[in-house]
Design a protein around this nucleic acid. Sequence first.
DNA 1: TGTTAGCACTTGGGCATGTTGAGTGCTAAA
DNA 2: TTTAGCACTCAACATGCCCAAGTGCTAACA
Lengths: 335, 335
Amino acid sequence: MSEPRKLEVLRAIVEDYVHSREPVGSKALVERHHLGVSSATIRNDMAVLEEEGLIAAPHTSAGRIPTDKGYRLFVDRISQVKPLSAAERRAIHSLLEGPDDVDDILERTVRLLSQLTNQVAVVQYPHSNRALVRHVEFVLLAPKQVLVVLIADTGSVGQKVIEAGSDTSNEALMLLRSRFLGNIAGTQLALLPQVLPSVVALCPPELRSLAQTLAHGLQSLSDTSREERILMAGTANLARSNVDFPLSIGPVLEALEEQVVMLRLLSDMGDDPRGVTVSIGRENPYDGLAEASVVATGYGSGAKVGILGPTRMDYPTTMAAVRAVARYLSRILGG
Amino acid sequence: MSEPRKLEVLRAIVEDYVHSREPVGSKALVERHHLGVSSATIRNDMAVLEEEGLIAAPHTSAGRIPTDKGYRLFVDRISQVKPLSAAERRAIHSLLEGPDDVDDILERTVRLLSQLTNQVAVVQYPHSNRALVRHVEFVLLAPKQVLVVLIADTGSVGQKVIEAGSDTSNEALMLLRSRFLGNIAGTQLALLPQVLPSVVALCPPELRSLAQTLAHGLQSLSDTSREERILMAGTANLARSNVDFPLSIGPVLEALEEQVVMLRLLSDMGDDPRGVTVSIGRENPYDGLAEASVVATGYGSGAKVGILGPTRMDYPTTMAAVRAVARYLSRILGG
DNA sequence: TGTTAGCACTTGGGCATGTTGAGTGCTAAA
DNA sequence: TTTAGCACTCAACATGCCCAAGTGCTAACA
């Protein structure tokens, strides 16, 4: 058997199966694709493919379906990313051009991506390493409760309520606010952990403890709050794509609800700067996603966008959509 | 037939069906509940109930299942709200006592409620009519782009990016900020629409247009941004509860994703201050929820909490959980 | 008048059986 | 290496059958 034809057969099987949702047999293959050989030859090739673990037969006399490994090879070596249709490009343009809030943009992005791919779309809040401190605000909510607000020049706003060890006055907060602001305005968020201690040291001794608490709050706002959130849309697509045969949708929904799981999933995926990364079926670190694939890529300075869907998905088109959306996102939000 | 027994039969049918998921017949009924009569009598009663549209038979020789109308009567007249178990009370206490962020509290609330009821939990952001303006911030993001931040004394933070008509300087924003702050600090958010115009009028003519834009931004932050958001958790429960027979889960997921739909749904439900409100099956204004019920109630100053699940749910227990959670929420967030 | 026992009737679900068609693997020839 | 041919396998579907659960009705009963 010739190597190129073998790949061609695999490609045909994947495409047909994705399209029809049914195991594909040798005869149907030669009819739909004009490979220049007979069904018997295809059968031989299929036997080899099966031996190599690239395809499998649900039962003795049914067609073959791709295995995770088969999809993997398909994605890595065969499929070429399809260009988006003009209509899709237009959709991306028009939906993402409104120059609004970061939150707004992200929300529209997931929506768009889920509609484009008919899958569940997920986006991580952008990394803001290079963001600078714009403003700091301390608001006294209760005698021992302070709301800490950190505003970056990128337009992202972080907030957190913290507990003060002892009663606090508005005056003290005013004072501390100007101290902090004077010293860290314009500083990179990423550098806060290094800068904050010295600011605390400058504060009057009687406020030192409060300052320490506030600094701690600011720091946690700077590194975690934003980057560790995700947004998603299109969960209804899960139900749609599995209308006939029951992929267990439950575990998938559970995974989607656990932000921690999704975040780990996304960050575990290599950050291939050339293109999108695909994680197929059991390659996923989470058991509930054994029948699902994730297609994701980075945008901006390292955060992820992507989709999640059944292993049986149209990889070329999906990958194209994810890549395109990520590019626009990078452009809009800046590197 | 005696009226009280008829109701008793309906109650028994509902309870058995909720529990077993299977149509319940006359014989099984007399066995499991010690009504003092024979199955034949029950059959007669059932015939009457069916005539009144309270129960229905899937096919000729199967048991009966409650109709929407049957559930309605059950909820309105029969079921008495069950007290929560001690364990459940404890769960509510411990999970909601951490004195954190509003967002934090709400997030934990939906989680708790979904676990308590095994349904999808939904909570609307609290109405903050009585909240006072604590702070206002304008941040220049780009020459024509300003981030408007509004902080209330309740700890809620609203933010929005707006487009300025012409180039803007930091100095101008500084000036406007202090003007605004001086005039509206301490004002009720709900009163902003009345107060803001006069503030704008006080600004220097050359900044009047910008001030107008900013005021508009503040106003939209005050009335809409927070109250029109919802949080939800437990969508995976949808899949679980319908594992055997396929309630079309797709439309429900779609509804859940559309915040607008959910918001309307919640606010359309009467604001019965005495207890929880239930909307059953086709009573729901949204078609996709024809096989679902919503159990909700108000908390704080009018926002809603509730759950969504299949019509075949354990109403008494669910209602108890919703009510209990709402009470705690009111207590924590203050009226 | 309401309740009960008895009985004929309906019907979905389970089961055993038969049939069909798609698809395979193998062999022998080209 | 490819191909035609053929025996074989097996899920899916259909058919017929029986059974159990459940109903509605009628006639007797308290």
